[in-house]
Amino acid sequence: MRETLGLTGPKKGCDLGQCGACTVLVDGRRITSCLTFALMHGGREVTTIEGLGGDPEGDLHPVQQAFVDHDAFQCGFCTPGQIMSAVALLAEGHAGDDDEIREWMSGNLCRCAAYPNIVAAITAAAGR
C-alpha cells in the first residue's frame, strides 16, 4: 500500500499489530493493515485515510475536522490510524459515552497522549 500505491497515509509504527498506526477499513471494518496482505482481501473495499475524501486545502471529513477542532493529536503520526478507528467506532455505535469511546479506541496508541482530546473529538463528531 505504502510502497507500491504510494498511499503513505497509513503509518508503520510497529509492523506487529500492536500500535494501530496502520489502521484501515476493509468493507467498513477496522483492521491493522501491517498484519495482512492485499491478496487476502480480493474483491473487498479497502479504505485508507486518503479515502475519507478530506481535502487539506478545503473541506475535511467531519471526523478529521473534529480532530483539528479538539487538538486531538500532536506529532500526528498515530492520527491517520486514530481517525480510521474513530470512523469505524462511530459506525459501530460505540460512542455512547466517554468510557465506551476510551475502551473502543484503546487499540490505537498515541505516545504524545492526545487521548482526552481524541475522546472530545469523537464525542463532537458523534453529535452528542
Partner: peptide, 21 residues
C-alpha cells in the same frame, strides 16, 4: 489557535521521513 499543520496531519498528507518518495 488551531494547529496550522492540522489539515495535512488529519488527511494523511503530512510527509514524514518514511513517506518521502
Amino acid at each position: 489557535a488551531a494547529r496550522v499543520d492540522g489539515p495535512v496531519k488529519v488527511t494523511g498528507t503530512a510527509i514524514y521521513t518514511g513517506d518521502v518518495a
